[in-house]
Simulated assay, not measured.
Amino acid sequence: MAKTGVITNPRSQKNKQGLDQLSKMLADAPQARHAVLDSVADIPEILADFARQEIGIVAIAGGDGTVQATLTALLGHRPYEIQPHLAVVPCGMTNMIANDIGLRGNLSGLGRLLGKADDDELDSATLTRRVLRLENAHGKDPQYGMFFGGAAIYRAIIACRAKVHPLKIKADTAAAVTLAGILGGWLLRGGRSHEDAGDDGEATQKILSGDRIEVAFDNQAALELNSLVILATTLERLVLGSRPFWNGGEGHFRFTSIAYPPERIFRYAWRLLYGKENRSLPSDSYLSRRADRIALTMDCPFTLDGELFEPEPGKPVILTADDQAKFLRI
């Protein structure tokens, strides 16, 4: 069986309670190596060391941001000639990647992985997924991850971290509380602007507002959008198991835009999040398709797997997904 290296972020939400159980589990697994981060900036050197030791499985005990930093180091720095298998242990506040392609359970999944007897068992548990490559984040080299979100998604993350995460509500519940509260309040006011809605309405309106974005799919002519939400992903399921993308076709990843103001969003909400491939949504408000390359000309900040970025002034944000990674789902 391939040797396993574990990268642990002690600042990830579930790891803040202590690493005793994890440390004991790894002490009982002589084939495992354990690296505890002082900073995510340590990840490139840790991976280079794992590669020198011929470690074939890299387990990531952290949240989505730790996974994003690991993917960026693996695919940006290329310490491995042949990419290792990845095992995502859900230890963060938000574990969207782990919920879709990570180990089942928290440390129990890692225990099952360490107990695997041979490589045949690992092959049967392997999922291969495309990885987003993002160019032109301000002041950053190309970044790699699984989920890109902009416009109200970015603003909702800020609100969630400020108002909901301090309550230590479960991650999926926290996202639902934040988004449902924002959207519900806006709908109850009939979408009125903040001038008519008071201070709370002003805060809501700042989140639920439109951003002017130009999007060009696969070098086609750009479309001008006024978007409430934009997202792109190689994941199959997002928060609460939702699938807010439809229309098949060709392309390595999916892109969705919801216009502002969205047409009858309350009526279409379930179909938008959980509908079948052909959802019969109004095309003026709801756009979804696959692509191999997307160029986004925009001023609004954005997120990649929960990490926050701003676009490089004067340059479009470029999304592609030419690289693949192998994830273990045990």
Rank of each mutant, 00 (worst) to 15 (best):
H194Q: 04
H194S: 09
E195F: 08
E195N: 07
D196Y: 12
D196F: 08
A197P: 04
A197H: 06
D199R: 04
D199L: 12
D199H: 07
D199V: 04
G201Q: 03
G201R: 03
E202D: 05
E202N: 05
E202I: 02
A203Q: 15
A203N: 08
A203W: 15
T204P: 03
T204C: 09
T204Y: 11
Q205R: 12
K206P: 01
K206W: 13
I207T: 13
I207A: 10
L208W: 04
S209M: 14
G210H: 02
G210A: 00
G210I: 06
R212E: 14
V215N: 07
A216C: 05
F217I: 06
F217V: 12
D218Y: 06
N219C: 09
Q220L: 04
A222P: 15
A222W: 11
A222H: 15
A222M: 10
E224C: 11
L225V: 02
L225S: 01
L225D: 06
L225M: 13
L225C: 09
N226F: 04
N226E: 15
S227W: 00
L228R: 07
V229D: 07
V229F: 10
I230D: 14
L231D: 06
L231K: 05
A232G: 02
A232V: 09
T233A: 03
T234K: 06
L235C: 10
E236L: 06
E236P: 11
L238V: 09
L238I: 12
L238Q: 03
V239T: 09
L240P: 01
L240H: 10
G241K: 01
S242Y: 08
R243G: 02
P244K: 01
P244W: 00
W246L: 05
W246R: 09
W246D: 11
N247A: 15
G248C: 08
G248P: 01
E250V: 09
G251F: 14
G251C: 09
F253H: 05
R254I: 01
R254Y: 10
R254C: 14
F255D: 05
T256N: 05
S257A: 15
A259E: 07
A259C: 00
A259Q: 07
Y260V: 00
Y260S: 15
Y260N: 11
P261T: 00
P261M: 02
P261L: 02
P262G: 04
P262H: 09
P262T: 00
E263D: 08
E263G: 02
R264V: 00
R264T: 03
R264S: 01
I265C: 12
F266P: 05
R267C: 00
Y268W: 15
A269N: 13
W270H: 12
W270I: 13
W270D: 13
R271Y: 08
R271M: 05
R271N: 07
L272W: 03
L273G: 14
L273I: 00
Y274E: 13
G275Q: 03
K276N: 04
E277Y: 09
